[in-house]
Write a protein that binds this DNA or RNA. Structure first.
Lengths: 218, 218
DNA sequence: TCCCCGAATTTGTGATCACGCTGACGTATG
DNA sequence: CATACGTCAGCGTGATCACAAATTCGGGGA
């Protein structure tokens, strides 16, 4: 009866290089790796139970996205950002994120705002528990949940590469200043969303982004 | 006498995967490949005289940058953009490029403007000769020459990935409408630069970008 | 004339290996 | 005791191969 046979391709059998890529990507974005940390092909291969070939492809992909840095000799490390670069990346965030938020505003119904609120609660819990990785994860998820509504996949993709570049450094920030209170601007974002106030939303995003990264300056 | 022996590493001996990457990148960005064109590992390997391994790395890197599309079965092709995606990429350009131009404005001295003018002349010649690849190349070089002065490598890097995604489509545009006159806004850009007028410069960039891509809509 | 199915070819994937360079440690020298 | 040098384990690079999935194209049936 014309059965649609999908053997290995579609269902849940991603190639090895893709598994490795996704795993490392999360580790980088969530700040599980410290800045300047070196990664080796054989080490990653062993960690994921694959050979050097898929590990190499995953690393090549991540360096192409700026998540990792390639030294002149081919060594791969997590990036160590200087102040200029941090500031530039923060400015890119403050350029893209208000735009994405504004685009999402029209499509942001109540269920979305509620979901963001619960993510924000998880974020506050992570702060209370002093869990840096969980803090970064929920913080990014808060933002991404909103931006997904913007229906602008290319712009969101660009933004994620910026997040990726900031990942290790953000973790270093967190452990340095050990914040004990939730980011204050998330509430402003939620209020602007509920009020449907575009200008306030853009402003709240801009301050949330720049404020959070201002403390990163060495 | 302590001769500095640099054998293979530094001087001018880039790895094979890097040569392949750079070659393909230029082909894509300059529109030498038509949208939807398929690329094979063995074919590229043969074209560049290398094995599948470096070819695979180059393709992986380019797909990570959005220059190429990866099908579900692992086949690699140049992207075929729909109208929504074209419009989104154009909006990203009109977000980033005025910002980069504005940052470059302070540092744009006369020699830079002269150089841009001569690139613009080459652009006009390419139009007269009906040379699509050269037209796209000089057009991008005109913009990049300005943006390099912005001293914002991350933002320029992001923009280049956008250019990369538009490459094959821009070529298709060119052959469809066969423009015979130079883009009018390049003159406005040069005038704004000379006048040091930030607002006019931003506006000129925005219209140049959106105007050029408006005709792309199917 | 059109559609469907199966064989053959082509494709991406991943493992393995040899090679040459890199970077760090330990030793010898001042 | 500090410094320079030589050694060596470990690294990335690239070629090759086996394998399985996918695409293509032809022939046969409706």
């Amino acid at each position: 009866m014309n059965e649609v046979l999908r053997r290995q391709t579609n269902p849940a059998n991603p190639p090895a290089h893709d598994r490795v890529y996704r795993g490392l990507r999360l580790q980088v974005m969530h700040g599980e790796l410290t800045p300047g940390q070196a990664l080796t092909l054989r080490g990653i291969g062993k960690q994921y139970g694959v050979s050097m070939t898929p590990a190499r492809e995953a690393l090549r992909r991540l360096t192409a996205e700026g998540a990792l840095t390639l030294s002149a000799s081919g060594r791969v490390t997590t990036p160590e950002l200087n102040n200029d670069r941090i500031e530039e990346l923060a400015q890119i965030r403050s350029l893209l994120e208000p735009e994405l938020a504004s685009r999402a505003l029209r499509r942001a119904h109540l269920a979305l705002i509620d979901r963001m609120e619960s993510i924000n609660d998880a974020n506050a819990r992570a702060i209370h528990l002093q869990d840096p990785v969980e803090y970064i994860r929920t913080n990014l998820e808060f933002h991404r949940t909103l931006y997904l509504r913007a229906q602008s996949p290319a712009m969101l993709g660009l933004l994620e590469t910026v997040w990726l570049q900031l990942g290790p450094t953000m973790r270093a920030l967190y452990t340095r200043l050990r914040r004990t209170t939730a980011p204050p601007h998330h509430r402003l974002i939620l209020e602007a969303l509920r009020a449907g106030d575009d200008a306030a939303l853009r402003l709240a995003l801009r301050t949330d982004v720049t404020q959070g990264l201002r403390h990163l300056q060495v």
